Computed example of a mutant assay.
Amino acid sequence: MTRTEEPVRARRRGAFLGVVWTALVLLFGVPWWTLIVAGPEWPVPVVVAGTVLLAAAALGLPWLMMRGHGRRGSDLAARVGDTLLGVVWVLFTWSVLGLLARVGLALLGVADPARSRITAVGVVAAVAVLVVWGYAEAMRVPRVRAVEVWLPRLGAGLDGTKVVVLADTHFGPIDRARWSAGVADAVNDLDADIVCHAGDIADGSVARRQAQAAPLGTVRARLAQGCVTGNHEYFGEAQAWLDHLTGLGWVSLHNRHVVLSRGGDRLVLAGVDDATARRSGVDGHGADLAAALAGADPDLPVLLVAHQPRQVAAAADAGVDLQVSGHTHGGQIWPFHYLVRVDQPAVRGLSRHGARTQLYTSAGAGFWGPPLRIFAPSEISLLTLRAGAAPRSGG
């Protein structure tokens, strides 16, 4: 490191630590203020116990996250840290709403300490219910979300083609091998023509997550099963995961395409690396749509698999007919979807971009980090491709 680089790195570390500590103060400080200190007038033992509990959690969370998600991460630390992060996010959100509820109660003439105690008990009850429900939602096999997508350039022989989009399985610290088998069974029950895995296969090495990913080897489709990398593959073994899925019978759409045919008509199934691939430093990786479509007949419709919805800008410029993506998790824990919307052009569902291109954003099958899904249900996406323009709605 040169002398000129040292101050820059020091400033970056300082800024990062500043952001982390600010986030910790807000995440734990707002619940402490809302539930314990401001207004309820709890007995001293309650105030002391609540303060100690929140302080210990605030100090323990950074250590758990570093211990769990470092280079030699501990799955146990990751499970505890991720769960704690999810619970405190829900607690923070509903503590903010609790402050608003206090204003409403004050307008109704309810005085303290009753007003603050009612709010505190309500917040804790709501958080408890949401965490239990959110965990159940995260751990269940996703429901199927069926959508018809009309493609004017699709040949009549391909009308009715069933495309299943699987995204964000995120095999990780929680052993979800049984869940994975259930997902594979649910996909196979749909009797798809094409199955796409839109990335974020796993968090961790192939060796550590191989058992959870094994059921992907049972997935079958009439025409093809194609996969691409997500941003989380570039935290570890991107090429190894593509190679592993290839060994399980999937087609690696690593900046390439295959041509599929049915009923005398053809469709280009293409894929690109994740948007973060180029700066990851992994040799030979980087989203390259031109390479993915090289040699493809420009008159054929194109189904593109790209992990992040924001990659649709390049797809629209290239005249891609349909891009399927994941990445957003539908927000995963409300109201996080508002932040996702700042970074991505869509959070979930079907949207149009440019003159020709449509984008389907899957809310994803799994979860990352906190094992919670709150007001952001997981999904296995079933897209039925229809030839021609979408019919006009009546009325």
Results as ranks from 00 to 15, higher is better:
208 R>L: 13
139 M>K: 00
85 L>R: 08
355 A>T: 13
249 G>M: 09
81 G>W: 06
130 L>I: 00
151 L>K: 07
160 G>E: 13
395 G>Q: 05
26 L>Q: 01
203 D>P: 00
214 A>L: 11
289 L>W: 10
21 W>S: 08
191 D>A: 15
144 V>P: 01
283 D>N: 08
280 S>H: 11
142 P>N: 02
299 D>V: 12
331 G>I: 02
168 D>T: 09
222 R>H: 03
62 P>A: 03
300 L>F: 08
34 T>N: 14
251 V>G: 00
303 L>V: 06
116 S>G: 03
278 R>A: 15
224 A>E: 14
340 V>K: 00
105 L>G: 07
368 W>C: 02
132 V>Q: 00
350 L>T: 05
114 A>T: 15
162 K>S: 12
211 A>Y: 06
74 S>A: 09
390 A>D: 14
301 P>L: 11
67 R>Y: 02
366 G>E: 05
349 G>V: 06
48 V>N: 08
3 R>P: 00
270 A>S: 11
320 V>L: 11
179 W>K: 05
200 D>Q: 12
272 V>F: 04
76 L>Y: 03
43 P>T: 07
120 A>Y: 07
363 A>T: 08
11 R>C: 05
32 W>R: 14
133 W>Q: 02
308 Q>I: 01
169 T>R: 01
83 T>A: 14
119 T>F: 01
5 E>Y: 03
300 L>Q: 05
327 H>P: 06
121 V>F: 14
220 R>C: 00
35 L>K: 05
127 V>H: 05
35 L>M: 06
298 P>Y: 09
318 A>H: 12
245 L>D: 03
110 V>C: 08
337 H>M: 14
88 V>Y: 02
265 D>H: 13
240 A>Y: 02
3 R>Q: 11
241 W>T: 03
295 G>Y: 09
275 A>W: 07
104 G>V: 15
59 L>C: 11
284 G>S: 06
203 D>I: 09
341 R>T: 00
66 M>L: 15
317 D>E: 15
40 P>G: 08
256 R>V: 04
33 W>Q: 10
177 A>P: 00
215 P>I: 01
181 A>E: 14
160 G>C: 13
274 D>C: 04
307 H>I: 04
45 P>N: 08
209 R>K: 13
229 T>H: 07
165 V>L: 12
227 C>S: 13
242 L>Q: 15
155 G>P: 05
246 T>S: 15
358 Q>A: 13
266 R>H: 10
366 G>H: 03
325 S>L: 01
386 R>N: 10
182 G>A: 12
17 L>A: 15
202 A>Y: 07
236 G>R: 10
250 W>R: 03
111 A>Q: 14
342 V>M: 12
201 I>A: 11
299 D>Y: 01
223 L>K: 04
166 L>M: 08
174 I>E: 09
120 A>H: 04
321 D>W: 08
304 L>G: 03
31 P>I: 11
37 V>T: 08
65 M>W: 02
215 P>S: 03
221 A>V: 00
119 T>Y: 02
318 A>Y: 14
376 A>Q: 01
251 V>S: 13
308 Q>V: 04
118 I>N: 02
190 L>F: 00
275 A>I: 10
315 A>D: 10
340 V>L: 04
88 V>R: 00
360 Y>K: 12
70 G>W: 11
274 D>N: 07
339 L>G: 14
12 R>V: 13
231 N>R: 06
228 V>R: 05
